[in-house]
């Protein structure tokens, strides 16, 4: 248990500090620069001309940005809800039942998308929808993207929920049954409340993954189905103005507050 005395304390090794600082700097300096230039008064992305909130106004008034944001939220929220519910059921089916033949296989299949290169999934999804459209005349419009997101978010939501279920003391459910709770009551009154932090982390992860997805969305999206990552990508191929920085800063602010909220939920429940 006592990790302090165990073998080597890596923090005291020579070079540890330097490597840590280098990594953190590499990671956060570009983001910091990006944010600073969001407050640039000038028209050029990399030429500082004084402080201004001008580009935030431009970005928020931009119709294309608004439409992309709307699409993104719609897709992410649907994907989060569907994938979290599905992942919760899958996790319960793999931890709260007698081991069934093929369970390990099912576990691997659920998690496989995490290992498959995303571009492969993207191309496969694209051909699948193309086939649907050509063969059966089915095209759900933005629903195609939602469907794709719902599915690829499942393993991300599944992991923390399953971990939470595995850690949970099974005698708690025995105790509930012992105290006259039917299986459904035991789930609702004991298992589910204790599972909430896991579900919250799963949902947060699913949301961020969907919100941020580029590769699959890029291939599946039709005209008028631009999401925020696609919109930003589009903008970077034109002469860049600090508007991009402002948009990125808004997204960053949103992500950070989202993470803080889900962290607080998890901590409160603990």
């Amino acid at each position: 248990m006592n990790k302090v005395n165990a073998s080597v304390d890596i923090k005291t090794q020579p070079g540890f500090k330097a490597v840590a600082i280098l990594c953190l700097a590499m990671l956060y300096t570009p983001i910091l620069v990006l944010i600073i230039f969001a407050f640039n008064a000038g028209n050029l992305m990399m030429h500082w001309e004084g402080v201004s909130l001008r580009w935030f106004g431009v970005a928020l008034a931009n119709q294309d940005f608004q439409s992309a944001a709307r699409n993104t939220f719609m897709i992410s929220i649907v994907a989060t809800l569907v994938s979290t519910v599905t992942a919760t059921l899958a996790a319960i089916g793999m931890t709260r039942v007698k081991a069934w033949p093929g369970m390990r296989m099912a576990f691997m299949i659920i998690n496989l998308p995490l290992m498959v290169p995303e571009i492969i999934t993207a191309v496969a999804t694209l051909s699948f929808f193309a086939l649907l459209a050509k063969g059966l005349g089915l095209n759900f419009g933005i629903g195609n993207i939602m469907l794709a997101h719902c599915v690829f978010c499942i393993p991300f939501a599944f992991m923390p929920i399953r971990a939470r279920l595995e850690d949970m003391d099974l005698t708690l459910e025995n105790a509930a049954a012992d105290l006259y709770a039917t299986p459904w009551q035991a789930f609702r009154r004991v298992t589910f409340p204790l599972l909430v932090p896991g579900i919250a982390s799963g949902a947060a992860l699913a949301f961020i993954v969907s919100f941020d997805d580029f590769t699959i969305t890029q291939l599946v999206a039709g005209p008028g189905q631009t999401t925020l990552p696609l919109y930003i990508w589009d903008q970077t191929r034109r002469p860049m103005t600090p508007e991009i920085n402002a948009i990125s800063a808004v997204l960053l602010l949103f992500s950070i507050s989202f993470i803080i909220i889900s962290f607080l939920i998890a901590r409160k429940r603990k």
Partner: peptide, 14 residues
């Protein structure tokens, strides 16, 4: 278990 008028004190209290 939930239909039995029997209650348990668990080793780890649960």
């Amino acid at each position: 278990a939930y239909k039995r008028p029997v209650n348990t004190v668990f080793q780890n209290y649960a």
